[in-house]
Design a protein around this nucleic acid. Structure first.
Lengths: 241, 241
DNA sequence: CACTACTTGAGAAAAGAATCACAAGGATAC
DNA sequence: GTATCCTTGTGATTCTTTTCTCAAGTAGTG
């Protein structure tokens, strides 16, 4: 009926979405290197997954490849980004103008991918009125009216853990639908608000656990030449997370 | 035989390790509130998982609870952190002294949890010699000798994507065993080096996908009072990543 | 135009992870 | 000391996700 590749809308695993973000990252790198077509296996190797995994992930959204050929890099990028809804601008607000908050406000890649921070908030009276990257810092009490006025749906929390819940509550009251939470604290929000936790410690714990508990990888020794030899043919590691 | 709770060393899922980090986060918050004992179900609710999930996760490492009572908060924290190997200091180095790098260097929670950045590197000649939080910026060429001299095993990469691979190669040559990579790029390292990717975009993509594709949650309208009512009894969301 | 070489897409099978259900163990009250 | 109550730890079950396998489809070659 339709000329678009009919999407098989059943339940799509969260893991698939996560991997799609990585595929885009690698595909964009390929595009910069002027690679125009790639098949699933080499792409999979660059992403640290199986080829069949990529094909299955993409199949949730439609048919983007050409049998016998592979995938057109640019077409695949736009197919994935539009499938996910990240092919256009998303205005955002940020709460917590500390070191990390400022880093996010100035993050060029973030802005380049359409994530535009439109307003920033902090509860520290000494910061109110400061300008960061051209944006004025507003008090957290004004989150609700400003979010409502701007009609923003996504927010970033970069406060200390003890202030994350208050920020989240203000944001929810203002009608925010999604929160990217960098604060090392769990927050409670209404059911319709989706929270993504960016937890450095989780990654660090994982790193250290794998370091200390993987005696299977404890190779005796390895000199610089040996490392260089392995540098470009080793497994870049599973995506998961 | 031993008086320590015998660990059942079989394969431990990565997902379990990730959750343990969250358990510690919530337990530390409980400890601050002077909660001394907690049973699996209330802890599970605060973490956004099932009680049986917590019990199973802990069972991989031993028996830390008291039947009929629950878990001692402080004891459980130290049991988990020592099981994971995060109960002592970990010296680290950092490559890429930009906005994000500086934020990590100044991150108090990071330092408080034993992750101590001992040396920092950048390839920008104008940054070499600068002091950040008391640390002098060294050129990336010196990564190998300095890492070897310090005997550091863990590194953080906060460079732009195009410089992440070079940083990773230098680090691997210096004998680094684990890398926390904030750069939005996949890196290739020898098999024995473990890489953890901290990918904001992955979280953003997930957030937006859930926003746009979850029409099941599209409640008609909801005023502020309604939101407040739900604020403290709603599901804080699954841990997953 | 038939034939070969490749690659996708998808059903089937395998592996893995979360949940359930309950026996075992410990604390407390009487 | 005995009975009752409560919560853990774990085997069994269910559910989810990944991997395997191969038919279907496309481009290029002689």
């Amino acid at each position: 009926m339709t000329d678009t590749p009919q999407p098989k809308r059943k339940h799509i695993p969260q893991a698939t979405i996560k991997r799609l973000a990585t595929y885009v990252q690698v595909l964009e790198s390929l595009a910069r290197d002027n690679v125009s077509v790639i098949s699933s296996n080499p792409l999979a190797e660059a992403c640290g997954v199986q080829g069949s995994q990529i094909r299955k992930d993409l199949a949730y959204f439609g048919e983007f490849g050409i049998r016998g050929v592979g995938y057109q890099v640019n077409h695949l990028i736009s197919s994935i980004t539009s499938s996910l809804g990240v092919d256009h601008e998303w205005p955002m607000v940020l709460v917590g103008v500390g070191n990390l908050g400022k880093a996010m406000i100035n993050h060029i890649g973030f802005h380049a991918h359409g994530f535009h921070i439109k307003a920033i908030f902090d509860c520290d009276p000494f910061k109110i009125g400061d300008k960061v990257h051209g944006l004025e810092v507003f008090p957290t009490q004004e989150i609700k009216p400003i979010v409502e006025k701007l009609g923003v749906e996504i927010a970033v929390i970069t406060t200390p853990p003890e202030r994350a819940q208050r920020a989240a509550s203000y944001l929810a009251e203002g009608g925010i639908k999604g929160i990217l939470n960098f604060a090392p604290a769990r927050i409670k929000v209404p059911d319709h608000v989706h929270v993504e936790y960016v937890d450095f410690f989780r990654h660090m714990y994982n790193l250290i656990f794998n370091l200390t508990q993987d005696p299977k990888e404890a190779k005796p020794e390895r000199d610089a030449m040996d490392i260089k030899k392995h540098l470009f043919d080793s497994d870049p590691g599973q995506i998961r997370d």
